[in-house]
Design a protein around this nucleic acid. Structure first.
Length: 668
DNA sequence: TGGGAATTCGTTTTT
DNA sequence: CGAATTCCCA
C-alpha cells in the first residue's frame, strides 16, 4: 500500500515509535501522508480507529481528510475514527466534561460578533480601536493560556491591568450566560486536564495516536493540549511548514516547531521537498521569495513537472483596470488553452478587493465563486434563526435572547429591554429569568409585559420538545409560528427577501439532512453550528466557476492558473504589517499565493488605488523585486504598453529601476 | 416602538 | 465610495 509514496513520505508513514515532525513543503503531498498513515496505523500497526485522532484547522480540511481515508480502506474499519478541527475536538471535550468545568450540558457558543458586543458593553465605549484592542488582547491572553487571575497578577502597567480587568469581567459574563467563545473551546480542556489528572488519563487512553495537520498554525494552548494528550509517549505525527505560517496574528506560534524539538528530544524530523503541483519556474519564484526570510529549517522545493511558462508581472492604472485586465486575460487564456473556469483562481490580500473583481467578472459573464469572506452562518437572517435556537437550548444566553425577542419586532424595544437588563443585572439572573420575576410586572407597561410573557412561553414550549423531535420539522413549525417569511418580505424588497428566505430554507434542509445522517436533534445541531464556517454539502466543486479567494483562505488549495492581484506596498505587504514589523509573515503570504499555482502565474499591481473614496498613488510590492528576475515577463503601462521580456543580461537593476520610477511618474 | 433618512465612519487576514 | 450606525418622526 506504500508504493505510491516517495521515500521520505514512506518513512513518515512507517515511523511509529516516537514523536515525528514532517516538514511538508507546499504541494508535497502532506494530506496523502496523513491519510496513508491513518490506514497504516489501523492495518499494519493494529490500532483501533477509535484510538486515532487527526486534527485539522478547518472543517474543509477535516472533511477532505475523512473522505480520502474513506477511499483508502474499508469504511467499516474506520468506525470511531476522530477527524476533526481543534475546535470541534475542544467542543467534544467541553461537552463531555461540562460538569467538571461547571457548565450546564447546554452551554452556548458565542461567535466573535457576540464577543465584541459583550466587550464593548464592559468597556462602555464605542471607540472601535479600543474595542478591537481589547478583543485581540483578551484573545491573545486566552491563546497563550493566561487565566484572568494570572493576567491581573502579572499586569506590568495600568494598561495591562485595565485589560486584565476587562478580561475578568468578560469571562464572568460568559459564565453567567453559560457560554463559551472559540478560544475557550481549547483553553477549558487544557485547564481541566491540568487540574484533573484522572480526566486527562481517560482521554489519553481514548486518543492514543494523534496526527496534527498544519502544525505551524498551532497556538500555545493548542500545543499544550497536544502535549497533554500525547503524554510522555509522544505518539504523534505533526505535519507543518514554517514557510506557510500566516496566522501569527491569531496567536499561532511558529516557535511551537522549535519547542517540539526541545520538549521531545527523541523527535524525528522528515522533510518533504518534492512538489507534485507546480512547474519549476513557479517553484523557483517561490523559493527565491521565501529565501529572504530567516529559516528555522532549510528547505527547497523541486518538481519534475517541467520549466513551464514565465511568470507574468503586469502593471495596471488602477483597480478597475486591474479587474478588467484579469477578466480579459482569463477569457483569452481559457479560449487558447481550452480550459475550464475551475482552472482559474484570483487571489488577493483583503476581502474588500473582491468587489471590483466581482463586478468585472459579472460584466463578462464569467461565473465565479467566492471563498472566504462572509460565510453562510454570518448572514443576518441565518443568525436570526440561530438566535432562536441558541435561546431554546440555553435560556441564559442573553445575546440570543435580545436577538430573538426583537426579530421579528413584537412590541418590545430598547426601553423595555433596558429595564429588563437593569433588573436582571441587579438580581444576577438572565434576561429570560428576569421576565418571570414578580417585580418585573410593575416595571414595564402591560402590553410589553404581556408580549414578553408570551414570548418566553413560546420558547419554553419549543424547548420542551427540542431534544425529542426531529430538528427540521420543529424548526419549520417555529418559523411559521413567528411568521418569519412574512417578516422578511415586509422588511425588504421582494428580491433580497426571496434570497434570504431561500437561505433559511437551506438551513432547514441542512438540519433535516443532519438529523437523518447523524441522528442529531435540534439541540445537538445548535451547538455545532457555531463552529461551521464553510457551506457543507454545497456543490462547491461541481459548478464551473472561477475561484475568488483571500490568500489566507487559499492555503491548502491549488489551481491551474493563478492571478495574484494587488501586489503593492501597503496591500501586500499590508500597511499595518509594515508598521508593526511583520513583513516576514506577509512574505509567507506571498509565498502561499505563488505556490497555489500549478501551471501559470500572473501577478498584477496598480499605479493608483482608491482608498476610502480617495485616490492614492501606490508603489509596487517589494516582493516583486524579490522574484527571480530572469524568470518573469513584465508588461503593462510600465513597459510602454507592450510586452517586454526582461532578459538575464538586463538583470535585476533594470527592473528595479522601472518599478521604482513608477511612483514618481506624473499622472497620465 | 419601529422604520426610513441622514450622517458618519472607515479597510487585514479567521477558527 | 459604500456600509453601518445614529437620528428623527409617524
Amino acid at each position: 500500500m506504500l508504493h505510491k509514496l516517495n521515500q521520505p513520505q514512506q518513512a513518515a508513514v512507517r515511523h511509529l515509535d516516537g514523536p515525528l515532525l514532517v516538514l511538508a513543503g507546499a504541494g508535497s503531498g502532506k494530506t496523502r501522508v496523513i491519510t496513508q498513515k491513518i490506514a497504516y496505523l489501523i492495518e499494519q500497526a493494529n490500532y483501533d480507529a477509535r484510538h486515532i485522532a487527526a486534527i485539522t484547522f478547518t472543517n474543509k480540511a477535516a472533511r477532505e481528510m475523512q473522505e480520502r481515508v474513506g477511499h483508502l480502506m474499508d469504511p467499516a474499519r474506520l468506525k470511531g475514527l476522530t477527524v476533526s478541527t481543534f475546535h470541534s475536538l475542544g467542543l467534544q471535550l467541553v461537552r463531555a466534561e461540562h460538569a467538571a468545568l461547571g457548565y450546564k450540558p447546554r452551554f452556548s457558543i458565542l461567535d466573535s460578533a457576540d464577543a465584541v458586543k459583550i466587550i464593548s458593553d464592559i468597556l462602555a465605549t464605542t471607540d472601535k480601536d479600543e474595542i478591537r484592542g481589547a478583543v485581540s488582547t483578551i484573545s491573545r491572553l486566552k491563546n497563550d493560556f493566561v487565566s484572568p487571575d494570572a493576567a491581573l497578577v502579572n499586569a506590568q502597567d495600568d494598561n495591562e491591568l485595565r485589560f486584565a480587568r476587562v478580561y475578568r469581567a468578560y469571562q464572568d459574563t460568559l459564565f453567567a450566560y453559560q457560554a463559551v467563545d472559540f478560544d475557550d473551546l481549547i483553553r477549558l480542556p487544557v485547564e481541566l486536564f491540568e487540574r484533573e489528572p484522572d480526566i486527562l488519563t481517560k482521554w489519553q487512553l481514548k486518543l492514543r495516536y494523534l496526527l496534527i495537520d498544519e502544525y505551524q498554525d498551532t497556538n500555545v494552548c493548542q500545543y499544550r493540549l497536544i502535549k497533554q494528550l500525547t503524554g510522555f509517549h509522544g505518539k504523534f505525527t505533526a505535519v507543518g511548514d514554517d514557510d506557510q505560517s500566516i496566522y501569527a496574528w491569531r496567536g499561532a506560534s511558529v516557535d511551537n516547531l522549535r519547542l517540539l524539538k526541545e520538549d521531545f528530544p527523541s523527535l524525528e524530523i522528515i522533510k518533504l521537498e518534492q512538489n507534485y503541483r507546480s512547474t519549476s519556474r513557479i517553484l523557483k519564484a517561490a523559493n527565491t521569495v521565501i529565501g529572504n526570510n530567516p529559516k528555522l529549517f532549510e528547505k527547497k522545493l523541486w518538481s519534475e513537472l517541467g520549466i513551464g511558462d514565465p511568470i507574468s508581472v503586469v502593471e495596471m492604472k488602477d483597480e478597475e483596470h486591474e479587474a478588467e485586465m484579469v477578466a480579459m486575460r482569463l477569457l483569452a487564456h481559457k479560449f487558447e488553452n481550452r480550459t475550464t473556469f475551475t482552472d482559474y483562481a484570483i487571489l488577493y490580500r483583503g476581502n474588500h478587493q473582491a468587489r471590483v473583481l466581482e463586478s468585472h467578472l459579472r460584466n463578462h459573464k464569467i461565473p465565479y465563486q467566492i471563498s472566504g469572506g462572509q460565510s453562510f452562518f454570518d448572514k443576518a437572517e441565518i443568525k436570526d434563526v440561530l438566535g432562536y435556537l441558541r435561546l431554546i437550548a440555553n435560556q441564559n444566553d442573553d445575546p440570543a435572547f435580545i436577538r430573538a425577542v426583537t426579530t421579528p419586532k413584537r412590541g418590545v424595544g430598547n426601553v423595555t429591554l433596558e429595564k429588563l437588563g437593569g433588573l436582571a443585572a441587579e438580581r444576577k439572573v438572565s434576561l429570560f429569568e428576569a421576565v418571570h420575576l414578580p417585580s418585573f410586572e410593575t416595571l414595564v407597561q402591560a402590553a410589553q409585559y404581556e408580549a414578553l410573557q408570551t414570548f418566553c412561553g413560546f420558547i419554553n414550549r419549543i424547548h420542551s420538545r427540542a431534544s425529542r423531535e426531529p430538528g427540521g420539522a420543529l424548526l419549520r413549525e417555529m418559523l411559521t409560528a413567528i411568521d418569519f417569511e412574512t417578516w422578511l418580505y415586509e422588511s425588504d424588497e421582494p428580491r433580497p427577501a426571496e434570497t434570504k428566505w431561500k437561505n433559511v430554507l437551506e438551513l432547514v434542509a441542512w438540519f433535516d439532512k443532519r438529523a437523518e445522517e447523524n441522528g442529531d436533534t435540534l439541540i445537538d445541531m445548535t451547538q455545532k453550528i457555531a463552529l461551521i464556517t464553510l457551506l457543507e454539502g454545497r456543490s462547491e466543486d461541481e459548478v464551473d466557476a472561477v475561484r475568488l479567494s483571500t490568500l489566507h483562505a487559499s492555503k491548502g488549495l491549488e489551481y491551474g492558473h493563478v492571478f495574484l492581484v494587488g501586489c503593492e506596498e501597503g496591500v501586500l505587504p499590508h500597511q499595518a504589517s509594515i508598521d508593526s514589523g511583520m513583513v516576514e509573515e506577509e512574505r509567507r503570504l506571498m509565498y502561499v499565493g505563488i505556490t497555489r499555482a500549478q501551471r501559470s502565474l500572473t501577478i498584477t499591481y496598480c499605479g493608483k488605488r482608491k482608498r476610502a473614496g480617495e485616490w492614492s498613488i501606490v508603489q509596487p510590492s517589494r516582493f516583486l523585486l524579490e522574484l527571480p528576475q530572469d524568470e518573469i515577463r513584465v508588461s503593462g503601462r510600465l513597459a510602454g504598453e507592450r510586452n517586454v521580456v526582461v532578459s538575464r543580461q538586463e538583470g535585476k537593476a533594470k527592473l528595479a529601476n522601472l518599478l521604482a520610477g513608477l511612483g514618481s511618474k506624473p499622472e497620465a
